[in-house]
Simulated assay, not measured.
Amino acid sequence: MAKRIVTRIGDIFCVELGNGYKSYFQYMLKDCHYLGGAVIRAFKTNYPVEYEPKIEEIVKDEVAFHALTYLRAGIDENTWYKIGNSKEIGQEELKSFVFGLPQEEDTTIGYEKANELDANMEPYEHWYVGYAGCERKDIGKIPEFLKSIIECDGVLPYTCIVDRIRYGYYTWTMTFYDEVKRKPWPWVDSYVRKADPLTRETTYFHFHGSRAVREVIVDCDGNITRLSCENPVDGCHTLYAGDFGEINWRYKEFITEDAFEDVWNKSDKSR
């Protein structure tokens, strides 16, 4: 039987992150211009699970991001739970950010198909942008100044919201990130891999924040090259010096820490 929980503007929800910490977000607005999704503001502080902050403390925290989601799905899946309500809903924030998507970002095709979007799509000529609770309008190409305040439009599943809270970015494949770069939290470790069909090499990356700290290159013969901040160059290979967000990582390219460590510690076939 579904939980009988009534949601109201101002409700505050807790997300337990599974690492001994928890975080909070607040329901700000129902966006009737975008499928009736709940506009939320997620707060930046991660609290130890045993600590119980007061409502006033939570809503005074720095806002990490805004997003659209369906609250009921997260409640039903025990991903988040309501802990209270505050009349302080950050109304003044609603004009400090905008939601937007490029024309090619089709939110009607389903999440699995979206995760397989062509990585070589052309630059986007039409972005549909608008304030929360307002109609989105075609503004043409996205201007640079908007990239720092725009949030990905569309009603995102609860798994995406938890990813954003945990990592600072969405792991879901998004053409949105071709223009607006992913920005990990400075303390977050991210693990990704990229296959090169020409050289038939697969490169595994370990980022801390936005910086690559380790890299493993495995060639088609199983030979392994390991790079790190301490040893950034080996032959023709150099540790990736770019920002994490300069590459629009696809969903299937994200891997676990264990998967990276397995490759890092794997024996080189050439030895």
Score class of each variant (00 low, 15 high):
1 M>F: 05
3 K>E: 10
4 R>V: 15
4 R>H: 12
9 I>L: 15
11 D>W: 08
18 G>V: 04
20 G>T: 12
23 S>Q: 12
25 F>T: 13
26 Q>G: 06
27 Y>F: 15
27 Y>L: 13
31 D>Q: 09
40 I>D: 03
44 K>N: 14
45 T>N: 13
47 Y>Q: 01
50 E>G: 00
58 I>R: 00
58 I>M: 02
58 I>Q: 02
63 V>A: 01
65 F>C: 04
66 H>A: 04
69 T>A: 06
70 Y>L: 10
73 A>T: 15
76 D>A: 06
77 E>D: 10
79 T>N: 07
80 W>F: 03
83 I>Y: 00
86 S>V: 06
86 S>Y: 06
89 I>F: 06
92 E>V: 04
96 S>E: 15
96 S>P: 03
99 F>L: 08
101 L>C: 08
103 Q>L: 07
109 I>E: 07
111 Y>V: 11
114 A>T: 15
115 N>T: 11
122 E>G: 00
123 P>W: 04
125 E>R: 00
127 W>D: 10
127 W>H: 04
132 A>W: 12
137 K>V: 14
139 I>E: 12
143 P>D: 09
144 E>T: 14
147 K>G: 05
149 I>A: 02
150 I>K: 07
152 C>N: 08
154 G>S: 04
157 P>N: 15
158 Y>A: 12
162 V>E: 03
162 V>P: 02
164 R>L: 01
167 Y>Q: 03
169 Y>K: 06
182 R>T: 12
182 R>S: 09
183 K>F: 02
184 P>E: 05
184 P>C: 12
184 P>G: 07
185 W>V: 01
188 V>I: 14
188 V>W: 00
190 S>A: 15
191 Y>F: 14
193 R>Q: 11
196 D>V: 06
200 R>S: 08
205 F>T: 03
207 F>C: 13
209 G>C: 11
213 V>Y: 13
214 R>F: 00
217 I>R: 09
223 N>A: 10
227 L>I: 12
229 C>P: 01
232 P>I: 05
234 D>Y: 05
238 T>K: 03
241 A>W: 07
247 I>T: 13
248 N>V: 02
248 N>I: 02
248 N>W: 08
252 K>Y: 10
257 E>P: 03
259 A>L: 04
259 A>H: 11
262 D>P: 02
264 W>V: 14
264 W>S: 07
268 D>E: 08
271 R>L: 05
